[in-house]
Write a protein that binds this DNA or RNA. Structure first.
Length: 903
RNA sequence: GGGUGGUUAGCUCAGUUGGUGGAGCAUCGGCCUUACAAGCCGGGGGCCACAGGUUCAAGUCCUGUACCACCCACCA
């Protein structure tokens, strides 16, 4: 009772101190590093972290991602599995290079000023500074990763894996070099993969341009959103069935400004409804036109260069920016009378996903992975070898793999895995090797030049599940932990990453990279908008951790992680769950006040309704939580914990055991002892149950809120005999069959207490006033029950007197309620508010009446009685009897009360 | 154009074999009741988007409509 006895726990929960202490303890104990010399126990369980960008800062998406993985990992440890969670970072080629280049720009330098070597050195230096930043943030979240196995996509081991994969795919003919139209970012000066291009709507315009027919018989007018690319036109196209243009097919037209003759071709790709139904074809600067060019054997003329300017083949327009060229061309066409019209038009423009610059489709020599065969295997492996949660993503996954095009993997940047390919200056031989070749294998020449390009970042990420475990070496990690158990990630990288890991895993390991793939939500702001720095709606997890503590943030994220739905996060929610942390904290303080030492173990058969009830509820929680977590229903598990801890353990159980703990201060007029035996015995029993429930609750809470649960765990008596909470096993289940009935009885007692409280509140009776209550029990069994729990009713309903007598008459001035057939009569003595009680009874009666009539109607439906599920019909019949009984009793009480009021 | 998800209390969201709806916050009333005012007790508030259908019975299953969000494709 005294403050000294729980001096270890301050009155309010103070997360920052607790968390620092816990982190240090976990790190010192090294408990998240599995020992591969040992047996795997109940099995091996592994997760590889989705590697955050080295340059990045932790955002809410990471916080969610880490929280869910940590819940999974900590729970698997509780199940006795040997768990490996591999942390690491991604070098994030373009993104990182951009950041460093921006830095350089502030110094007035470009990467070319430094040169390749010096620039890369510069990026490594940057990585050294900021890699530690992300590491600290992962630690801040409480992630139970194995830091001894941390990996970085550019470290030596992973680079070796990348080279091995590249060379093997090349030798298998699955990597090739070719001329292709690519998405070119003129700012980053690199090609981008199809899915690295974001499309945004932009008001451009639609130009209708006349192309004079060769025979002088008129014009063919085409519609385009990009007049400047006309310099590279090599054909015009119409739909083969278009009556308007049928006669023109096969003829030629003259390209204005350039005077090249263009064939007029027919292709069903052309949409007759759009524009004029005629299309200009620019194979070198448009993806669709590229396909047309291939199909119809057209000329490919590049007119835009890598800087996004009109190139040397652009004639008089050469050197102009695209915007300038567009205006000039527009003006020139107008002057020639060839610009028929310019309409306002909104168009989707491709932009670089990293720097948002407009993407130009350009022809360029690039490296590609032929993905068709890889994709087929990846498709086949789901859902049998890898299950995806929620399964609705399966369709999206299939759809993407079915329409996949070859993957452009070369990037014209410097930060990344340099392509292991050399060209012989003497004979032109292309040499692809894992290590630098000494000499050309064909001609023996030593003038070998390495390909300047680096690989797409996702190329190395695709190998992550096995490269981090030591591949291509045959390591014990690989043997024990591959395939990994589950991948936890956001759907935004389903294609970038998940599908490609599937491809590479299956190809190189002959086995899927993960058994389960849990796709979690995107964290949005309270309005449902994607959080982004530019919008300024970012909720910074580190700020939240600072204000409310990591556990509050983690619990909030878990509670909102309903499968298949985005999370709308607001600070208020986090604040709300901070209150929950404080509640847990104070409940523990209370419990520890009464637990100086480890109490006796639970007896074989626990007596006492409240004890049996809470034990029953605890078992129900275990069951519910396990089921929920097995199915990745984090929100259900979190919700069940919240409800149990707050509404059952705190609101009822802790209140009820106060009577046991202070049994010697027996309230007046208790009609019976709660538990057989002396006050000392009932206190001892209460201590045993309390200790057990608290101890096991902490284990159940731990995966969600590791900091506070560990802190309380360490304050428990007998801590020396226990493991660290992070290593404690999930408590075994107890038989509940004989507890269920008492759990129901407890609800009767709770109902009685609530009924008195409601009367008190609605009649505005001060809580300080102890009431006198008469109960007319519905039957002898219930009378015995209420008599046994009389002490509880008296204390929780704040009574001075409780009488139980089926025959007793209600005092004239009294308020009343009916709970499961038991008539609760509260004596009002002097100050009776007749109007208030009348209104209350009317309301209550109306409620009963409504439910009763509904039920009667339902039960008088013959088809329901005939076809309804028997147990439901039976339940309804019982309920009807109950309701009928309640209305009769309440009616009688009301009449009596009215009579008293009339006097 | 194709696809997915959503529409439930003032707000944000749960709702798992179909059996007349829940939580948190907000709100109203009463309480510093000896773990917690970051708390306790109690109340009010919902034709579950709309229209049909299946069923004894629909928030829940089916069809359609409207609106919102996102993903893929990129009709120049």
């Amino acid at each position: 009772m005294s403050d000294e006895r729980n001096a270890g726990l301050p009155k309010g929960y103070e997360p920052e101190q607790v968390e620092a202490r816990r982190r240090a303890a976990w790190e010192a104990a090294n408990i998240f590093t599995p020992n591969l010399q040992e047996d795997a126990g109940n099995g091996a369980f592994s997760i590889v972290i989705p590697p955050p960008n080295v340059t990045g800062n932790l955002h809410m998406g990471h916080a969610l991602n880490l929280t869910l993985q940590d819940i999974i990992c900590r729970r698997q440890r509780q199940l006795g599995k040997q768990v490996l969670w591999v942390p690491g970072e991604d070098h994030a080629g373009i993104a990182t290079q951009n950041v460093v280049e921006r830095r350089l720009k502030e110094e007035g330098l470009t990467r070319r000023d430094l040169g390749r070597e010096a620039f890369i050195e510069r990026v490594w230096k940057w990585k050294g500074e900021y890699g530690d930043n992300i590491r600290r943030q992962i630690k801040a979240m409480g992630a139970s990763v194995d830091w001894s196995r941390e990996r970085f996509t550019l470290d030596e081991g992973l680079s070796r894996a990348v080279r091995r994969v590249f060379v093997q795919l090349y030798n298998e003919g699955l990597i090739y070099k070719g001329l292709y139209i690519v998405n070119w970012c003129c700012r980053c000066h690199t090609a981008l993969a199809d899915d690295e291009v974001d499309y945004t709507a932009r008001k451009t315009g639609l130009w209708l341009i006349r192309y004079p027919l060769e025979d002088g018989s008129g014009f063919l007018t085409v519609a385009t959103t990009r007049p400047e690319t006309m310099l590279g036109d090599t054909a015009l196209a119409v739909h083969p069935d278009d009556e308007r243009y049928k006669a023109l097919i096969g003829k030629k037209a003259r390209l204005p400004l350039v005077n090249r003759l263009l064939p007029i071709i027919a292709d069903p790709y052309v949409d007759r409804e759009f524009g004029t139904g005629a299309l200009k074809v620019t194979p070198a600067h448009d993806h669709n036109d590229w396909r047309l060019g291939q199909k119809h054997n057209l000329e490919f003329i590049s007119v835009i260069d890598e800087d996004g300017k009109i190139g040397s083949q652009g004639g008089v327009y050469a050197g102009l920016s695209l915007e300038a060229a567009r205006s000039r061309i527009e003006a020139d066409l107008a002057e020639l009378g060839l610009l028929e019209e310019k309409r306002p038009y909104e168009n989707n423009v491709g932009r670089c996903y990293r720097c948002s610059s407009v993407i130009e489709p350009l022809m360029s020599v690039q490296w590609f992975v032929a993905v068709k065969s890889l994709a087929a295997k990846a498709r086949e492996a789901m859902p049998d070898q890898t299950r995806i949660f929620p399964s609705s993503w399966l369709k999206t996954y299939y759809n993407w793999l079915d329409n996949i095009r070859d993957w452009c993997i070369s990037r014209q940047i410097w930060w990344g895995h340099r392509i292991p390919a050399w060209t012989c200056a003497d004979c032109g031989e292309l040499v692809v090797r894992e290590e630098s070749p000494e000499a050309c294998p064909k001609c023996g020449g030593s003038a070998l030049t390495r390909d300047p390009d680096v690989l797409d970042t996702w190329f190395s990420s695709a190998l992550w599940p096995f490269s981090t475990l030591g591949w291509p070496d045959e390591t014990p990690e690989l043997a024990r932990f591959y395939p990994t158990s589950v991948l936890v990630t956001g759907f935004d990288i389903l294609f970038f990453w998940v599908a490609r890991m599937m491809m590479m895993g299956l190809h190189f390991m002959d086995e899927v990279p993960f058994r389960h793939c849990y796709i979690h939500a995107l964290v949005r702001d309270a309005q449902g908008k994607k959080m982004s720095k530019s919008t300024g709606n970012v909720i910074d997890p580190l700020v939240m951790i600072d204000k409310y503590g990591t556990d509050s943030l983690r619990f909030t994220l878990a509670a909102f992680a309903a499968m298949g739905r985005d999370i709308r996060l607001s600070e208020e929610r986090i604040e709300g769950y901070r209150h929950f942390m404080n509640k847990i904290w104070n409940a523990a303080r209370f419990a520890l006040m009464h637990l100086d030492t480890v109490p006796a173990p639970l007896p074989e058969k626990v007596t006492g309704l409240h004890h049996r009830w809470i034990l029953y509820r605890l078992e129900e929680l275990k069951k519910l939580q396990s089921q929920a977590l097995d199915e990745y229903r984090f929100n259900d598990a979190a919700g069940a914990l919240y409800k149990f801890i707050w509404n059952e353990f705190c609101d009822w159980y802790l209140e009820l055991i106060k009577n046991d703990m202070w049994a010697d201060e027996k309230p007046a007029n208790a009609p019976g002892e709660a538990v057989s035996g002396s006050p000392a015995q009932s206190k001892a029993l209460a201590q045993s149950v309390l200790y057990t429930v608290l101890r096991e609750s902490l284990i159940l809470l731990h995966p969600f809120i590791p900091f506070i649960s560990s802190e309380i765990w360490d304050a428990m008596p007998g801590r020396e005999q226990e493991n660290d909470l992070a290593l404690s096993l999930f408590p075994p289940r107890r038989a509940v069959s004989d507890l269920a009935e008492d759990a129901g009885n407890m609800e009767t007692v709770q109902g009685v207490i609530s009924a008195v409280r409601t009367i008190r509140a609605e009649l505005n009776i001060s809580p300080a006033l102890r009431l006198s209550v008469l109960i007319r029990p519905v039957d002898p069994k219930t009378q015995a029950l209420l008599e046994e729990r009389g002490r509880d009713i008296i204390s929780l309903a704040r009574l001075e007197r409780l009488d139980l007598d089926p025959e007793a008459q209600a005092p004239a001035a009294s308020a009343s309620a009916v709970v499961q057939g038991n008539e609760i009569i509260v004596s009002l003595k002097g100050a009776v508010d007749f109007a208030a009680e009348n209104a209350r009874l009317d309301k209550e009666m109306a409620k009963l009446e409504k439910e009763y009539t509904g039920l009667v109607a339902k039960l008088s439906n013959p088809s329901y009685l005939e076809k309804g599920r028997p147990e439901i019909v039976e339940r309804d019949k019982t309920r009807r009897l109950e309701l009928d009984d309640a209305r009769v009793k309440l009616q009688a009480l009301k009449e009596k009360f009215a009579a008293a009021g009339a006097q």
